[in-house]
Simulated scan of single mutants.
Amino acid sequence: MCCSVGFARSLGLALLPLALCSVLANLLLLFPMGEITYIQQDRLASYIWYFGGLGVNTSLLFLKHCLCAAVPSQMCGSVLAAIIGLLGSGYCFVISGLALIQGPHCFTSYGWSYPFADQRGRYLLQPENWSWCLQPINIVEWNVTLLCVLLGLAVLEFIICLLQLGNGLLYILPFIYHDYFY
């Protein structure tokens, strides 16, 4: 059983840098190329405002102590934290994926629009069309890079939380079984 507690602590510590990177990637999405102008003018893609990695991963930062301090009485808390982490990483994955499919909100020769929205993500394989976005400069590359980072981080967080959920359940089931049948 001691191995289970150590494993939970390791998983909790692994979530910390992933959550911090997710928060950072979300913050960078709010400021294309480091400029504040586009957020002030409300020129960001709609899915960026759903904060796929920000809110959920901030809560993971607060909940990670349940995973790091997994003593028998707190193992139920780490299971709860793992479930919240699974939901959060799933949310981050879905929102980031939808944002990638929609494409950036940018200024084109026709004004501000979503020039790739009707392509269902095919624009990702057609970098020659990325120049349709005139402003912010390199917004397609910026969004694609950060959203792919968020997708990858969400997958890693999901795997870690799934491992913790299994670990926590394997740890507490004997206690529940013993209390129920004896």
Rank of each mutant, 00 (worst) to 15 (best):
P115G: 01
N167C: 14
L153Y: 01
L98M: 11
A8P: 05
V79R: 15
M1K: 08
I139T: 10
W112E: 07
P136Y: 13
C76W: 12
Y47C: 03
C2V: 14
G97S: 13
A117K: 15
I139C: 08
C66N: 11
Q74R: 15
R120M: 11
Y171N: 11
P104M: 09
L61T: 08
F93C: 10
F175V: 01
V155Y: 04
Y110C: 04
C66Y: 11
P104N: 06
V23G: 05
A70I: 10
E35I: 13
L29E: 01
G52L: 01
F7I: 10
D118H: 10
L28C: 05
T145V: 03
W130M: 13
A19Y: 04
F62V: 15
W132Y: 06
L54E: 09
C106H: 04
L86D: 07
S46V: 12
R120E: 11
A117N: 00
L44A: 10
V56I: 13
D42R: 13
F31T: 11
Q41M: 12
T37R: 14
L54V: 03
C106F: 01
S73Q: 07
L20F: 05
C161A: 15
G103V: 02
G55H: 00
P136I: 13
M1Y: 10
M1I: 04
L125V: 07
S109Q: 10
G103W: 02
P17R: 08
Y110F: 06
G168K: 05
A154T: 03
